[in-house]
């Protein structure tokens, strides 16, 4: 091997970069998000699987229909009426932003700009 020092230094840097997640994770404890609903309601507008993957689609469609098209009709699921609204709809049951929304959003670095327009409801407790 020629230029041993330089080649080995380069390879060590390369391996450190590739294994970044391995040694970076050692520094802190991992946690799994635990979103809390805090109310006793057991039903939602859509099934759990849909909500886990696609809730942002639902919210943005509602925004479009309600805000841009002015269609404020409520949505009825299993005989229960829901207002198509973030603060007056979703957050009636999912009351806490910190204990519900942020749990997963912070876990995967998602930063929705809801509060650019909406007024943040006060966190109780």
């Amino acid at each position: 091997m020629y230029d041993k020092g330089k080649v080995i230094t380069g390879l060590v840097i390369f391996v450190l970069i590739v294994t970044f997640p391995v040694w970076y994770n050692v520094r802190g404890a991992q946690h799994i998000p635990n979103p809390k609903i805090l109310t006793k309601v057991k039903h939602c507008v859509k099934p759990l699987d849909y909500m886990r993957a696609d809730h942002m689609k639902l919210l943005i469609d509602w925004r479009y229909e309600v805000v841009r098209e002015g269609d404020r009709a409520k949505v009825t699921v299993d005989g229960v009426q829901y207002e198509r609204s973030l603060v007056n709809g979703c957050m009636k049951c999912h009351v806490s932003e910190k204990k519900f929304c942020d749990q997963c959003h912070e876990y995967v670095d998602v930063n929705p700009y809801c509060w650019d327009c909406h007024i943040k409801p006060k966190e109780t407790e």
Binding site: P21, N25, Q30, I32, P33, D49, R52, A53, D54, K57, C104, Y107, V108
Partner: peptide, 12 residues
């Protein structure tokens, strides 16, 4: 879309 939380649990 699929559930990104499960994906991150697997990746971590």
């Amino acid at each position: 879309r699929t559930d990104v939380i499960y994906i991150k649990e697997l990746a971590v």
